[in-house]
Design a protein around this nucleic acid. Sequence first.
RNA 1: GGGUGCAUAGCUCAGCGGUAGAGCGCCGCCCUUACAAGGCGGAUGUCGGCGGUUCGAACCCGUCUGCACCCACCA
Length: 877
Amino acid sequence: MTDNTQQPAHGPHSASADLPTQYAPAEVEEKLYERWVERGYFEADEESGKDPYAIVIPPPNVTGSLHLGHAFEHTLIDALTRRKRMQGYETLWQPGMDHAGIATQNIVERELAKEGKSRHDLGREAFVERVWRWKAESGGQISGQMRRLGDGVDWSRERFTMDEGLSRAVQTIFKRLYDDELIYRAERIINWCPRCLTAISDIEVEYQDDEGELVSIRYGEGEDSVVVATTRAETMLGDTAVAVHPDDDRYAHLVGRRIALPLTDRSIPVVADEHVDPEFGTGAVKVTPAHDPNDFEIGRRHDLPQQTVMDEHAVITVHGPFQGLDRLEARSAIVAALRAEGRIVAEKRPYTHSVGHCSRCKTTIEPRLSMQWWVKVAPLARAAGDAVRDGRVTIHPKEMESRYFGWVDNLHDWCISRQLWWGHRIPVWYGPGGEVRCVGPDEEPPSGEGWRQETDVLDTWFSSGLWPFSTLGWPERTRSLEKFYPNSVLVTGYDILFFWVARMMMFGLYAMDGTPPFRTVALHGMVRDQFGKKMSKSFGNAVDPLEWMDEYGSDAVRFTLARGANPGVDVPIGEDWVQASRNFANKIWNATRFALLNGATVEGPLPAPEELSAADRWILSRLGAVVSEADAHYDDYQFAKLSDGLFHFAWDEVFDWYVELTKTTFQAGGRPAEVSRRVLGEVLDVVLRLLHPLVPFVTEELWTTLTGRESVVVADWPADSGFRDRAAEEEIAAVRHLVTEVRRFRADQGLQPGQRVPARMDLTATPLAAHEAAMRALLRLQPAGEDFTATASLPIAGATVALDLSGAIDVGAERKRLTKDLAAAEKELKQTTAKLGNDGFLSKAPDHVVVKIRARREAAEADIARITAQLERLPQG
RNA sequence: GGGUGCAUAGCUCAGCGGUAGAGCGCCGCCCUUACAAGGCGGAUGUCGGCGGUUCGAACCCGUCUGCACCCACCA
């Protein structure tokens, strides 16, 4: 051992030898994060002259804690913003949380229930105060988790959708929409959750196939009777018609007549309506306008009365034997009563049909006639669709566009009122004489006798739809708004494309004079378990990201998630894979340790090309290419390719091959060792910077140690040096190939490390078949008969023998297989082999074609000899 | 009913016209002074089925089968 392999040649990093042999995330992460925040790296300056780059956080619900899906999303956003920050953009990653109306109210109500109380025991004001208290605790938990993840958010700008400023934005846009007649109040069939006791919008309803029972009931008497089928017998109390198809001859005689409604003293008309499918069931439908959206429409067309039969708890309100029964009890009671009257004409049969459930509590939705507030979405949605259609906003991956269009082009009006207490109260006052007044943020509410404010609050997505500009101070024209609106990109899950993305598009375009809220939407998939199953608490496969971060480090969790992130595709993640990422972090750690121990340096210019060894030129050439690839993948939101590419470059090429090659250089010492120290330093410097956005902690710790500089967070993003050396790349590829073959040979022959190769050995068994197969595949020529031969010799015991890879192929069979034109075949072969970095040619003979490949191995002969010699000395690599 | 994807190694997935790949798992050898959370070598695939286009198809076209998701909706 010489001194210069033990001591850094120069530089300030002698302390680096103290790095432990394993990376311990727990010891550095918290310290580094606090340092970043203290130094203000993540704070965005709206007065800066730099170009802006802004992303808003999809605000997590204050309910509870972050799950792996958040960790995933945050990793992507953090990687994007960290890179842009390094590239010199004025970067804003806007943090904040959503008040999550129903979800939060449900949780706090559940807490109250444990104390035996309901929200009504507290009253509205005290209840809301209680929710605020709860929010204070829960919100803190979330920001703690974000710090653990390393999220580079600007904490000084944290917002909450119920903040004063954001509430002002809500009131402002409500008033503007109201004045533009895009918000209105109307009585319609809405999706009612009898447990949450509120209306919900169409997309908050989840449909699933439920088992029901279809019963057939005879309405009317004798000639004037008709059989209807239903799964919801209890609604018959509210029937106000029977509908049949206008062309249905079976019932033509009944249309316009009235028939008796069983169990009541009412009679109802038979109407003809196109909606009825004559093929389905009996072709006759009971019509309950107050409890079914389709029936409501039929009722409208035929001017039918709307008979409400259930209250908000889905309990029957009609006087009589069924009053007070809930909908399920009423269903069986009514069927029993009908059977007693002989009106059940077909036994009930099991019937699977799609039933709506509340997305918050899974209770079966009760469609219900109700007075609610609505947004008239058609004009807003048209603008939202056009912004994507005309390219002002692009959606990644592109396949998701059709989903987006399918939705914005077919929207029903949006029910925005909720019968909750937690949320933005609708800024409308009702006067004593029936007046309705919408109050803007700078107006005094009416105060006279008899005025009262609307008690409903707004759908939580109403305020989150304003997020890209409300967080920047809108409706004020703030400097922040000018600087950071529109956002550069929106990163979110495809599951909230309609809930959130489309709403932001509608509101953004409307409020910001036609400027969309972001230029690009990058949609990611959902995190799943290692078998591709959806993660859920009830299934028991949900993972708390904190547990994994504790065990393996935040970088490992982040890298695993990034590595699975193909655009728009779900991401499976398993603990094994996090371990693999942890191993990678440790590998980076130890490779850097090796570099430091051997005096790698980042100081001074790179040595001139003529001083570089083939290995140096190869790795620098590859480094340039990798920087460009990484840039392309970042720009295209290809996180999986990005991560995988960097993983393999770092591990296979830099850590395995280049580092191994430098070992002999370092041992030899002298000027070549100096050169390689600088090159190794350069390569690690760049690799750490490239990896930093994905794995911020380990790279920060190592980069600052390696370079002695302040922080990689504010380091320059690497640029492609433009240096390329095809010859060196091929040369090293040849070296790698040969070394691998020698190793394989030794392994096949069972040679122990350190054991010298005997002078004579039988080689026939080993690599020849591989060469032959490669030849065949390469040429895409199946050998006809047994004419094909290939021979190869390997450098053993220091002696290198030229490889003679040639084959003779019977042309009789091949001539058909190739084209009739051999010249064309030759041309194609040339192209093919050129792609593979080899020379190839066909030579024609009367009865056969000789195909030869000349691999450029001669060029590498010197290195091959050297490496082979080293292999004799260094038994394994 | 309408739409969008997907079927490739034991598992989870890349590749999308030119030598079938990765991670994990598996087998063998090695505690070699950066790293055993490591190193070296290896095995494993009718690339879902059937047709077609092409000199050449995992990749393009058609078709079938099976899955997933979204939308509409089922009296």
